[in-house]
Amino acid sequence: MSNSKIERVQGRACVLHGNDIDTDRIIPARFMKVVTFDGLGEHAFADDRKQAKGDHPLDREAFQGAQILIVGKNFGCGSSREHAPQALMRWGFHAFVGESFAEIFAGNCAALGVPLLVLSHADNTRLMDSVEADPAQQVTLDVARATLRYRDGEIQGKIAPGMQRQLLDGSWDGVAVLQTAGAAIEKTANALPYASNYAK
């Protein structure tokens, strides 16, 4: 099986202001009594959106269909629930750009093949302003170069080296990596006495 490599994410962007946005806000706990992550997308930021009465960035007409979410500092802090990046991914975001991300959230994104690009405060602010002024513009995140190209130019950012390598060589995909072993898995299994219920 060929591993899927994530080299770039391209599309329109959505701007979400605010720092320290925790995973409870991204996906409130009551939506976790579910059997698949499939339906989670529509509940992303459920409580925030309800309070905003249609004026939340995720509900704004101009940001519909956006692929990249631009956020502030320490995005995704709090509980480790994998449900949080899952919900945003299923809403339609395939990359996050911001000033910083919480560690566990970043780890979960890595396992899902979702790149996180870290920008300086100045660059992030300039990008947010530009996208808000012209939401129809195309934005391109280049994983290998850790850059973001937008209407007004190109910004140099940072992607954690481990994540960058995993995205580029496809090893973010745990199943694909482990499957590479092929029959060596059965060979290891069969050498274990309990595999044959200690028959020999």
Partner: peptide
Amino acid sequence: IGTSQVRDVLATGCLA
């Protein structure tokens, strides 16, 4: 293990 790892074990019988 986490949910993505549950998937890994189901699919491959292995973990990294």
